[in-house]
Design a protein around this nucleic acid. Structure first.
Lengths: 214, 214
DNA sequence: TGCCATAATGAACCTTAATTCATGAATAGA
DNA sequence: TCTATTCATGAATTAAGGTTCATTATGGCA
């Protein structure tokens, strides 16, 4: 029994290694290298072994997307739940999301915008929706507190989410120059603008976020 | 010579028929039926004939996208160029775009959001950029006139474009209920919100657009 | 140590459409 | 009418990778 646990751990570890390899491949060179054979080699297993752990390529990448996105959604959720005004939280959440995306730009680009196979793209939509959900919660809070205008929270959330996502596509593209100072400015502009569409009054006094942590 | 012109016309007509067939197929059931053999049959030509007119499948659909998008971009451009405040023009342009998209929802969905092959998706980005360009012009005008806040026009344009595009995805999805009255309300909300992020003052007095014409 | 269940292997197999091309039809010009 | 050229045809080919599976290796257990 105690030994079976060891075995189980190996299985878990191998699966994790495949997931990591898949994520790393995409992070390095995008979807064109997201091939089962390549990922298997990278993970140090045989091609066929991948299919002991995943039903299909689409399943594998759905899980990769899930892992990465879950973390991002969690970060956003944490900020969204924080104390303070909804306006401030919203700006902070978007700013942090943008900064983090730019930090891991190649992966973020692949997960957000890079053309990819339809099946994988479908999985993207799902996690984009999860992000929009977090925004929607914040929107409701802001409406309730009177900070935001009266508006359908879901429409508003998708507008906000679309705004910052789209604005990130350019800066995230592999050919864009990575400049962390400019990135910060752009992230601020994006966060400010995207949130601004909801503000009751023109522009509340918002302070800059200090936390672009983990 | 006069007869050569007849021939030329036939070529042009056949090409147009293939383009139409391709567009119609996508408008009817999305990318899954965007297959050369199906399109050829629909256009009443042999599979191979498609390749006399188009270099590849990607080329064919890039042209389909081009034709449809060009029209939409032109409509937006016309409104953007109109008299009146930049705020009003922006809201009008977005509202009109949204209404037109909802009118031809299946095609709009395919051209905007439906997962599709990477090559076709790449073409989508191009025409989305063209749309953002129109928005950017309007943004500059609004900044110049003092209606809009001082901000990078390109960042702003992509935020605005992303906002209304993303907000349209849900309502355009084939499974969403098509209700023209609700559609109008949603289009208004989307247009209002998307433009609002730029307004200097909270909400200018905007009248509803009357022109959602061709 | 030998046995068995479980996991790993990777070359061969499939699948799915895009693309080609040898053949035949049509047309313009002489 | 005849011929050269262009155009159309659609069955056969290709390509590219995902997926399978017969075979081999591993490791726990008696």
């Amino acid at each position: 029994m105690a030994i079976a646990a060891v075995r189980l751990n190996q299985l878990i570890e191998t699966k994790a290694r495949i997931l990591d390899a898949a994520r790393d491949a995409v992070a390095l060179s995008g979807w064109k290298d997201a091939q089962i054979a390549l990922i298997a080699a990278r993970a140090g297993v045989a091609t066929g072994s991948v299919y002991r752990y995943f039903d299909s390529k689409a399943d594998l990448y759905a899980q990769v997307l899930g892992l990465v996105s879950e973390r991002e959604v969690a970060v956003v959720a944490a900020i969204a739940e924080a104390e303070g005004s909804a306006s401030q939280c919203l700006v902070d959440a978007i700013y942090t999301f943008a900064i983090r995306a730019m930090r891991g730009r190649r992966l973020a680009y692949a997960l957000i915008a890079e053309p990819c196979e339809p099946e994988i793209d479908a999985a993207r939509l799902k996690y984009r929706a999860a992000l929009a959900d977090q925004v929607a919660r914040l929107v409701r809070r802001g409406i309730a507190s009177g900070e935001f205008i009266q508006i359908d929270a879901n429409v508003a959330a998708s507008c906000v989410t679309g705004a910052f996502m789209e604005a990130l596509v350019g800066p995230l593209a592999p050919e864009a120059a990575p400049d962390s100072e400019a990135a910060r400015v752009i992230a601020q502009e994006i966060a400010g603008l995207s949130a601004r569409m909801l503000f009751q009054r023109a522009t509340p006094e918002l302070k800059l976020v200090s936390k672009a942590s983990a």
